[in-house]
Each structure stands twice: as C-alpha cells, then as structure tokens.
C-alpha cells in the first residue's frame, strides 16, 4: 500500500507517496533525485548512506521513509553553504586527500560532522572508533582521520560551519 510521507530535506519541505517498504535512502535517491547518498551494502555495515536525521547521523538504509515522517533530514547535498562554500569537514577532506573514489565519502563526511557535534576535540583513537561504522576501501583511513582531526582544530579556532540547511 502506498503511503504519504512529509518531511524536510535540506531545508525544503517535501511530500511523497511511496510504497510502505521504501527505505529512507530510497526516498532520497529514487524519489528526490538526491544521489549523493550511496548504498554500498545490504546489511547496514558500510555507512555509505549516512545522513543526518534531526541532527543525528543515521544509516539511511536502516530506516523506513515512513519513520522520517515530520523529520528534518540533511544529506551531503545540503552540507555546504547555499553560496557553495564547503563545510569545514568537506574542505578538510579535500585538503588532506581524505577521499579517492568518492563512493564512501558522503557517508564518511556526514558521520564525521556528527562526531564533532558530540565531541569537538576527539583524539585519533576516538575518531577511529567513531568511524568504525563507515567502510572505506581506498584510503586506508589515514587521511580521513587526518582530515577529521584537522577539521576539529579549524572549527575550534572559530571557523563557523555554514548553517547547514536543516540543523
């Protein structure tokens, strides 16, 4: 049976009629055309699909679209400022070569942004433990960790994150 879901995605209200079994990631990718969020597995292990739901990082393949009713969702497409200025985490990934093929990157960035919301000054060990749910096959994690630690420094020293659309 089709159901109707209304939520806010990257600051814009959307209403869609979807099959009841539709996952949040399917709503984003297939119904809203937001293909930045990726699907890398079918067991909620890889984290390529991480988005923010009401400000918290969530694997969007573990959640039904229906469960996002009324929620505020931010995807990788909504992370940079409206003028295109990259979020400090995006900028840090670029600066420190924290991505290669780019497929795990959206989930990795969204997850890392949430880490700094919880813990603005993580140690290397804390960064590694937080990112345990995001698999990257290209980088060996070295430069991802470097990017997250560097971003934490940048954000502490006052560079404000652009107001992400929905958070």
């Amino acid at each position: 049976m089709p159901i109707t879901v209304s939520l806010s995605v990257n600051g814009r209200p959307v209403t869609k009629e979807v099959e009841g079994r539709t996952l949040l990631v399917q709503l984003l990718r297939e119904h809203l055309g937001l293909t930045g969020t990726h699907v890398g597995c079918d067991t909620s292990q890889c984290g390529a699909c991480v988005v923010h739901v009401d400000g918290k990082s969530v694997k969007s393949c573990t959640m039904l679209a229906a469960q996002a009713q009324g929620a505020s969702v931010t995807t990788i497409e909504g992370l940079a400022a409206p003028d295109g200025t990259l979020h400090p985490m995006q900028a840090a990934f670029r600066e420190h070569h924290g991505l290669q093929c780019g497929f795990c990157t959206p989930g990795m960035v969204m997850s890392a942004v949430d880490l700094l919301q919880h813990n603005p000054s993580p140690s290397e060990t804390e960064v590694r433990e937080w990112l345990e749910g995001n698999i990257c096959r290209c980088t060996g994690y070295h430069n991802i960790v470097k990017a997250v630690l560097s971003c934490a420094e940048t954000m502490k020293s006052g560079a404000k994150a652009p107001a992400a659309a929905a958070e």
């Binding site: 293909t35 969020t37 497409e77 940079a80 995006q90 070569h97 780019g102 990157t105």
Partner: peptide, 19 residues
Amino acid sequence: VRRREDQRFLTGRGTYTED
C-alpha cells in the same frame, strides 16, 4: 596539487552508474 575530482564527490555531485 589538491584534487580537482573532490568538489563533486564532496558535494554529492558525482555521477556513478546507479545515479
């Protein structure tokens, strides 16, 4: 040199086959 590919991958604008 910082990568020219990164802008699209970091902003969700990559075009993979499934996209």
